[in-house]
Every structure is written in C-alpha cells, then in structure tokens.
C-alpha cells in the first residue's frame, strides 16, 4: 500500500475550534503512521485532543491544516460520496455509547454495514465472528435486552464484519464496569491477533493502553511520547511524567 506498510498516515494535523480570542487549538501539528496489523492506543489526559485526532483520522472531521491518508488515499479533501465509499471499504467504528440501532436485533445490527453496502456476508466468517464475540446465543435479542458489555460486543462485531482496513475505537470501555471492560479489551486484542485487524483505540485508561502494540501519548494537541507494547505500570509512569512537564 503505502510506505513501510502503514495503512493510515497523518502529517502535521492541526485543528482549531472557533475563531480569534475564543479559538481552541485542539491539535497543534500531529504526524503519525499506523502500521498494518497493529493495535495502536492513543493516550492522554482529558482535553488533550485524542477524540479530535481520531475523528480526523477516520474522516469524520476535517483538519484545519495537514493531511490524512488511508490505504493510500488522501481523505482530507474527499467529497461526501467518496468518503462514504471509504467508510464502507476501509473503516470500522466502535463507539463509547455503542450506537446500536434499537429496532434491529443483534444479528441485524452486525450485518447492517454489509446490507448498506449491498454485500452478502460470508456465512462461515460471520458464524465464527458471532462465536468469537460471544453472541451466538443472543443473535435475536434487541439492544434494550442486552447488557452494556453485550451491546459493545455487538458493536465490535459490526465494526469487524466488513473486514475494514482499520477499526477506530473511541473509549470503548468508557461506559462499562471494569470486569466487562476487561472482556471487551480482550476481544479487541483477539481481533488483532486472529484477523490481523489494524486498530486505533483512544483511551485514557492505562489498563486499556496496555493491550496495545504501541502507545502514543498526546498532550495539549501534540504527540509527546511513544511507547512500544508496555505494562500498565510503565504507561501510568509515562502519563505522570507528561502531566508534570
């Protein structure tokens, strides 16, 4: 695809909210590369620009300056229909609040991206996917009949079903208790191992970042540190050094 196997590259991203005196500089020049098959975590204190970065990387928001490429395509200047195509082929999302459609069953929610794109699921793949996320016996339940953890499993399956180039997850455990959160993290990790699923996860929890192959630290709109796969302890220590500088 692009240079040295990176599926997502960003160069010198800047994002300013508002104008003049009230302007907020959420990103002040972020460049990064997300290698294929890696789980990358983006960490940082609240308000450091994590979500903004993710939205821009995923084409949900436009940077004030800088460029983003996904699978070799510069997405910053794409029109709506090209962005739609990009989302269908290359991007999966996992949200903090699950964002399932209440009137559809678990199975229908998972299949929705395919049916939107007008594709048929590969039955074998789909069955193992449901098996893997632990939803095999919940497929006809509606979101309101599922626990938070189960809903997030549906959301993960929905992100994986179209085998996107990259999955973006924003605080996927932010709305779950710690046991359930742990299970979800395990599931995300497994998807990287088993499917080689490139994943970018935004989190402020060191425990979550500890499953990543690489951790990027964001502070005040800049990447200030990068760690390879680390323990929860090391990540916490790194966070503290950032906070004090």
């Amino acid at each position: 695809m692009s240079t040295n196997g990176a599926v997502v590259t960003a160069s010198d991203l800047r994002r300013v909210y508002g104008e003049d005196e009230t302007a907020v500089h959420a990103l002040r020049g972020v460049s990064l590369e997300i290698p294929r098959g890696d789980l990358t975590a983006v960490m940082g204190p609240s308000g450091s620009g994590k979500s903004t970065l993710m939205h821009i990387l995923a084409g949900l928001d436009q940077p004030t300056a800088g460029d983003v490429s996904i699978a070799g395509t510069n997405i910053t200047r794409l029109g709506d229909s090209d962005l739609t195509k990009l989302r269908r082929e290359h991007i999966g999302f996992v949200f903090q609040f699950f964002n399932l459609l209440p009137m559809l069953t678990a199975e229908e929610n998972v299949l929705l991206p395919l049916s939107i794109a007008g594709e048929k699921p590969d039955p074998a793949f789909f069955e193992t996917l449901l098996e893997n996320v632990g939803l095999a016996d919940r497929r006809t339940h509606r979101p309101s009949e599922l626990s938070g953890g189960q809903q997030q499993r549906v959301a993960i399956a929905r992100a994986l079903v179209s085998r996107p180039t990259v999955v973006f997850a924003d605080e996927p455990t932010g709305n779950l208790d710690s046991t359930t959160g742990g299970e979800i993290l395990e599931l995300l990790r497994r998807s990287v191992e088993e499917y080689g699923q490139t994943t970018v996860m935004v989190t402020h929890e060191p425990r979550a970042a500890a499953i990543a192959d690489r951790v990027l630290f964001l502070a005040d709109g800049r990447i200030v540190k990068e760690l390879p796969r680390s323990t929860q302890h090391d990540i916490l220590a790194a966070l503290e050094t950032i906070a004090t500088t």
């Binding site: 949900l60 709506d80 229909s81 739609t84 989302r87 269908r88 999966g92 999302f93 949200f95 964002n99 459609l101 929705l112 991206p113 939107i116 794109a117 929905r158 179209s162």
Partner: peptide, 16 residues
C-alpha cells in the same frame, strides 16, 4: 439524529 449519523459512519450514503 444520532441514529442517522450512526448509519452514516458505517457506510450509508446520503441517498440511502
């Protein structure tokens, strides 16, 4: 609103 935005994120076009 949120429902429509969600289906857009998973690939629905405006036309859909």
């Amino acid at each position: 609103t949120r429902e429509f935005a969600t289906v857009r994120t998973i690939g629905a076009s405006r036309r859909q």
